[in-house]
Amino acid sequence: MTTTIGAHPTRRLILQGAASVALLGLGNLPFGAAPARAAANDKYPEEAFKQKNEADAIKALYGRTAEPSDKVKLDAPEIAENGGVVPISVTTSLDKVTSISFFVAENPNALAASYRIPEGTIPAVANRLKMAKTTKLTAIVEADGKLYSATKEVKVTVGGCGG
């Protein structure tokens, strides 16, 4: 009895905390800003990863929304024959880049990769992603405290997530 009472409030608190971070958007309240920063800097962003939807994942990871920018160059194939290995890369001419993330909208969990770029490292990364089906691919670049994005549609002929 005591254990069930003890467990429930904790779980509810965690859920409420996660929801408020997602809802706050810009996170100008200190309560909202703190968890978002912690997720972006220190530990594995489990909460952001769990978000099924791309917009929710971006909010959970950064605590705000991104604006499209032509200074972010996303390179991905128009048509990916094998969704299991899709080579992508992103470069940017923006200054003071602190992180770069990739989101695949139609995947079971949108967040695909998140990079921390300390000062002195050139903001350009490349890797290979899995894509479940034809999808929108978004790259987010965090520069000087603001978020910039680039998107591209990738046609996938054979999905890369198995069942």
Binding site: G84, L111, S114, A124, N127, R128
Partner: peptide, 15 residues
């Protein structure tokens, strides 16, 4: 880098 299941097998990273 934080990686998620959407990274292809045999992770390749370039920076």
């Amino acid at each position: 880098a934080d990686l998620f299941p959407a990274i292809a097998a045999n992770p390749y990273l370039s920076f």
